[in-house]
Design a protein around this nucleic acid. Structure first.
Lengths: 140, 140
DNA sequence: GCACACAATGAGACCCAGTATCAATCCCCC
DNA sequence: GGGGGATTGATACTGGGTCTCATTGTGTGC
């Protein structure tokens, strides 16, 4: 579960402290996206005694390593999703919060076209897709 | 300059009050993106006496009318860009902040492909492209 | 196995963007 | 010109996130 996260952190030369293990476990226990506030609530509910700052710090670390990514929900809030370090994009289920990853599926052509039309060079992009996952679709 | 914004607001049945005219002028005077904080600073620098709340309220109104759009910069900050009401995406110059709009250029194919692979239905998406505008590219 | 240098921690103060409240004011329609 | 409802600004508040700093814990070299 959380082993994967921990292993990746270890390999990146990050110290594996108690609080970090606990937070990693909380993250692993969630599926789909979560907010920093979710983790903070989880932690306090279980009286883990980890501070807010520690949670934000770990999230930063994980984001740096590409193990977690920040997505901006349609309502403007921020959430994090655990994910593979390779480049990809996220599908977010607006009903239940489930996340799917999609590898590049033709976006390069889009950026190339946009670049051609505008004269900009494009360094990076952000693509987020919002909809309903198969479960929520059939449940409705 | 700001006439366009004001005209559009007027047509939407929004009252054209003094503060709104002034804020519209501030927006028109900027080119490229700006943050709410920028406008607030502008307003206070010129001692316009418009309150923070009024600025946020007008931005909401403009966003509702599609005259302005919120983009999330790569560093996580929020900015607004004045734009046409039709659906489109933004190219943001990370050097000078200039903005270009690109109409749909193949993104539908991407969302369709992502939908096919994941089983999600896709309601909406967000695409932002970051790079350098022609000016900044040659200036470097 | 131990000690040590230094990274990491948690508590709390702090900051900033954005929102809510509410009495006073201003627009627009008649 | 008058009236009613929308708008305004001051201010308090909220919530996410950062900073500080004394204390604690970790991995490394021995």
């Amino acid at each position: 579960m959380s082993d994967e996260l921990l292993r990746a952190l270890d390999q990146a030369g990050v110290r594996l402290t108690g609080p970090r293990r606990e937070i990693a476990a909380l993250i692993a226990k969630r599926n789909g996206h979560f907010t920093a506030a979710d983790l903070i609530a989880d932690a306090s509910k279980r009286r883990l005694g980890v501070g807010r700052a520690t949670i934000f710090r770990l999230l930063d670390l994980l984001a740096e390593q590409g193990l977690v990514e920040r997505v901006d929900l349609p309502d403007g809030r921020h959430a994090y999703v655990p994910c593979e370090p390779s480049h990809h994009h996220h599908l977010v289920c607006v009903a239940c919060g489930a996340i799917a990853e999609v590898e590049d599926c033709g976006i390069d052509a889009v950026t190339a076209e946009a670049s051609r039309r505008s004269g900009f060079t494009i360094d990076s992009h952000r693509l987020e897709l919002f909809g309903r996952c198969p479960n929520c679709r059939s449940a409705n």
